[in-house]
Amino acid sequence: MAQFALVIDLNTCVGCHACATNCKEWNTQAAFGPLSDFDPYGKEPHGVWYNRIMTYETGEFPNTQVFHLPKSCLHCQDAPCVPVCPTGASYKREQDGIVLVNYDDCIGCKLCSWSCPYGCREFDEADKVMKKCTLCIDRIYDETLPPEHRKPACVLTCPAKARFFGDIEDPNSEVYKVIKERNGFVLFPDMGTNPANHYLPRTETKVHIDEHILKPDNPLFLEVVQKHYKGG
């Protein structure tokens, strides 16, 4: 069975918030909008976002690393938010595994957000219903769009190309391959939610230069030195 999901490369994510911004821009005017804002230009701006970017620091000084974690609904395969919904407004689609909220049935009891260990559901105080990432379902099935644009808004906009979208159950898909090849991992694996969205771990990149290249009799020596010491 298909399971659409996002795969986010933490190695290349630069934390620019473009995915969150474009998500907000698309979804606030699309089928699952609006994403209401309150006091947007005041002292206490707040509103609904499907996607938020957290920044963490690991290691101890001076050996620290900063990484950014874009977090939207993980479209869990055993989504705990679905069975607790008293009206059935929260549901998981069988054909593609996307978890959605039917705004016409949502009574705004907030119980689904209490049952999400990732904090990926947000209550819209203006519409009085629960809102969450839809994986841009109104884009990915829109046949009026060119095929290369039938992707979530966050994936299309990412300037670092850190986001991938596809069916993680399909061995021929790009996302399936990157998860396998680069040890994709999930958040909170112990919670029994089996999230569909994966993250690719950070890897250290090192330049290895063989010793013989650095010998003065190497005809390429000058070129290597110039390349590595350019500007200083």
């Binding site: 918030h17 609904v48 976002w49 957290m54 920044t55 963490y56």
Partner: peptide
Amino acid sequence: IRVLDTGTTTNNY
């Protein structure tokens, strides 16, 4: 590990 930034300047839901 420590939290550096949560992506918003104010509280959220």
